[in-house]
């Protein structure tokens, strides 16, 4: 999660040693991703022997980063410099597609 444009992300409600000057409300970002057919095929094979599905782990990680990036862009657009109390949520929508969702409170730190 490097592309956060200098916005501080935290899932605490405060930032140690910094004062919150202004609350700007909820910001959110989401993305719906489907599995790649090649990855799906490999995962099908892996389902026989069990173990980690590395392709999926990476896919979900990338998707979550994208959701965070969208949230950060929203925060940036309304003039925030930090997003606090960040939460993640994942839901599988149909077979093969999942929604990754990130949300938090945009604030201005002094």
């Amino acid at each position: 999660m490097n592309k956060n444009f200098g916005i501080l992300l935290s899932n605490l409600e405060i930032v140690p040693g910094r004062k919150i000057n202004k609350h700007l409300g909820l910001v959110q970002g989401s993305t719906v991703r489907a599995k790649h057919i090649g990855r799906d095929f490999m995962a099908g094979l892996k389902n026989v022997v069990g173990g980690e599905l590395k392709g999926y782990t990476e896919l979900l990680q990338e998707s979550r980063e994208e959701a965070v990036e969208r949230m950060v862009q929203q925060a940036k657009a309304i003039g925030a410099n930090a997003v606090l109390n960040v939460r993640f949520s994942t839901s599988s929508i149909t077979q093969g597609a999942a929604e990754l969702f990130a949300y938090g409170t945009a604030v201005v730190l002094e």
Binding site: L9, S10, N47, L53, L60
Partner: peptide
């Protein structure tokens, strides 16, 4: 409270694990 406030950063970890047959 800290006298020398630390930096904070969000950290995450994820893994997808499948069952065997």
């Amino acid at each position: 409270m800290f006298t020398n406030p630390p930096r904070t950063q969000l950290v995450t970890g994820n893994v997808v694990i499948s069952v065997d047959y």
